[in-house]
């Protein structure tokens, strides 16, 4: 009879090694995504077609780009609820500044990104020095930005998209990969690299997991906060531009609800509200889980209300599967503490 302490020894060494390497924990959401894609492919062969899959990435791009910024903020221990409002404002501003002229595209995009970054900067300053709740402060910003968008637009989405703008972003490279999908994947890759390889990225985890220790270590948390929220605002504006490129017309509430889609993707991807955990890779996988779920129920042709029910169940099951896989890892780490590494940190 084996004792509790002896039990690990009877496990196949390869499995133990695999679990101890933390692969399951770090990749749990990807495992869930692959499993969900497998189920989806059994239901519809559309999920085996690369053009359909890349189109799904294009659908996800506007929320996805904004979700990258939200991930960085949440790793640092904050939250940004203003991204939906910034997406709406950015789409309206970009269209108005383009005014149907191809020559205005560069100026319009630069100005839009600047406005998004400025809103993020304001969020960062308020949070860093006012020390208020990021939840309340960014919610307040969202309300104010929606109001600003209404005043600016007068209730109609003024502005005309310049010729060439949509054509460029919706062009499929090699007849397969939409530029918009590439833009999102490129933004995610850059953010993941920044998060893993730069001092800025590592500082986010330190401030998020232990702000006091970060201060004692000499990290300038206020500056980091401002920079991160500025990045989030900038990426939300880029999400607005992506939305304009996808849909061709802005509406004054085009981004409403996107903040919750972004939050769902970020949390599903393993980044927590407490900070110090998760990362951009998980967010990309979490986002794709959401979009596969929504597209799957849609492509199955279920009744609208059944679609919502099934999509909700898929998300809950995906989340539960993710939790199960990561908690397995935590259990293992309690059994072998010497192998335990910082969760989700790069």
């Amino acid at each position: 009879m084996s004792t509790e302490a002896e039990r690990p020894r009877v496990r196949p060494a390869a499995i133990v090694s695999w679990l101890n390497a933390g692969w399951v924990e770090r990749s749990a959401i990807w495992v869930v995504l692959v499993a969900l894609l497998g189920v989806a492919a059994l239901c519809s062969d559309a999920f085996l077609q690369p053009s359909y899959l890349f189109n799904m990435v294009r659908q996800a791009a506007p929320v996805g780009v904004a979700a990258i910024g939200v991930t960085l903020v949440m790793v640092m221990g904050g939250v940004d609820l203003s991204v939906g409002a910034v997406i709406s404002l950015a789409a309206v501003v970009a269209a108005v500044l383009m005014d149907g002229q191809a020559g205005n595209i560069g100026y319009a995009l630069a100005a839009t990104l600047t406005i998004g970054a400025a809103i993020g900067f304001a969020n960062g300053v308020l949070i860093a020095w006012n020390r208020g709740s990021p939840f309340i402060l960014t919610l307040g910003t969202a309300v104010a930005v929606y109001g600003l968008t209404q005043i600016y637009s007068g209730g109609t989405a003024r502005g005309i998209v310049a010729p060439g703008f949509r054509e460029f972003f919706n062009e499929r490279i090699g007849g397969l990969v939409p530029v918009l999908a590439l833009l999102f994947l490129a933004a995610a890759t850059i953010a993941a690299l920044v998060q893993r390889t730069t001092r800025f990225g590592r500082s986010l985890y330190l401030v998020g997991s232990n702000p006091r220790a970060a201060r004692l270590a000499g990290l300038r948390a206020a500056r980091l906060t401002v920079t991160t929220y500025t990045l989030s605002g900038l990426l939300a504006a880029l999400g607005g531009i992506a939305l304009l490129a996808r849909s061709g017309v802005s509406s004054t509430f085009a981004g409403r609800g996107f903040e919750f889609d972004a939050l769902a993707a970020v949390v599903l991807g393993g980044t927590t509200f407490e900070g110090g955990r998760g990362g951009v890779g998980g967010t990309v996988a979490g986002l794709l889980v959401l979009f596969v779920a929504f597209n799957l129920v849609n492509i199955l042709g279920l009744n609208y209300n059944v679609q919502r029910l099934v999509a909700g169940v898929i998300i809950i099951v995906a989340s539960a599967a993710y939790t199960y896989l990561t908690s397995r890892r935590l259990t293992e780490s309690r059994l072998w503490p010497s192998h335990h590494t910082s969760e989700g940190a790069p």
Partner: peptide
Amino acid sequence: KQITENLLQR
């Protein structure tokens, strides 16, 4: 547009 993309697949 997104819904129609799926209808076209279905």
